[in-house]
Design a protein around this nucleic acid. Structure first.
Lengths: 188, 188
DNA sequence: ACGCTAACGGACGCCGACGTCCGTTTAGCT
DNA sequence: AGCTAAACGGACGTCGGCGTCCGTTAGCGT
């Protein structure tokens, strides 16, 4: 039972990065159902190389979206740092909707697609905790409806994912209007 | 160039009905991406028979959803008949959301999937006209926000389609909560 | 009852995506 | 420079859905 080397060769590492770049671009533009081979093609590698690094599409997606996941976290923290909690919450809603609108695939991966928690679950939970805290403060400030629950926001984010449109710009516009409506629904 | 008979034989007509039933059931439950063959299997016919009646999936969907389309129309008319226009509009929103939640496929067919207007366009337009009238009255009554536009409602319906869930019941629950939020967003 | 033909459905070939194997290339170390 | 094993990628077999052809069945009119 020989030990595998933990350190990738330089060319292998380079290919890995190119694969992730390609995956991110294609997932964002086309959604989660792009063929694995197209990602490989775009990255300039053979299918075998892709499968060697990421045995399954979920593994690839998990890796590709950690970046976006941390972006979500950052957005929430930023909102939490806002002196006006209601204003912070509004910013969070707007920015999260925009982020999701820019990434066709991220939304589906985030909400339904991957039932079993891809490793991002931890970050997700942390973000949710911060979000709950932000909501509590906003509620205290009297601007957020007292009967608001966190699930309402999650529901809205999931619904935001239903805004299909061929062009990214159209999706962005729809998403912005939707965020505005969501905010109106939440305010006291 | 022989003339084709305009009248279907009795067994053919029977099969046609069974195909439509199967299609409606499967489209509602599984969404628009069920294989044609599964519809045929469920209807108890061969693939050839299915393709003979409906050369394309869109043709089948168009026929299968006319019923739902008229249901939409009826819902809007019912809302229009309500003495309280705001209450009527709320009912319309709730019922439309529920209808879409019950039919996984209808939403996608209705919103984005079929770019070129399936024959239902006429009914759709008529429903939209009635809806605009209802909105006008609701606005006059002062309960609906003055800056409401019809597109906002369409946006919400599209977003409602993003509420994925494995079970129909879960989807229904989510849809109801969503409808309530939408109504809150719209009221003055 | 019988024949004509509409209608049926099993079977076929095609295609695109999948995941893997294996002969070839090349990075990295001496 | 030369060697070794890590890494590559083209090629392969499989699978599932698609749309069609053609030999068989059975409705309907006489």
């Amino acid at each position: 039972m020989g030990r595998l080397p933990q350190t990738l060769r330089s060319d292998a590492l380079d290919n890995r990065d190119r694969i992730l770049d390609a995956a991110r671009a294609l997932f964002a533009a086309e959604g989660m159902d792009v063929p694995m081979r197209e990602i490989a093609r775009r990255a300039g590698v053979g299918p075998a190389t892709l499968y060697r690094r990421f045995p399954t599409k979920q593994a690839l997606a998990t890796e590709a979206f950690t970046e976006q996941m941390y972006a979500c976290h950052a957005i929430v923290e930023e909102g939490l740092a806002d002196p006006d909690p209601w204003h912070g919450l509004c910013l969070v809603i707007e920015k999260l909707c925009e982020l999701h609108a820019r990434n066709r695939g991220f939304t589906t991966a985030f909400t339904s697609a991957f039932p079993h928690a891809m490793d991002l679950a931890a970050v997700r939970e942390q973000a949710l905790t911060s979000l709950a805290e932000l909501a509590r403060r906003a509620k205290d400030s009297g601007r957020l409806r007292p009967d608001f629950v966190l699930d309402d926001l999650i529901l809205m984010l999931m619904a935001n994912g239903g805004l299909h449109a061929t062009s990214t710009n159209a999706r962005l516009a729809a998403s912005r209007r939707f965020a505005a409506l969501a905010i109106r629904a939440f305010q006291a």
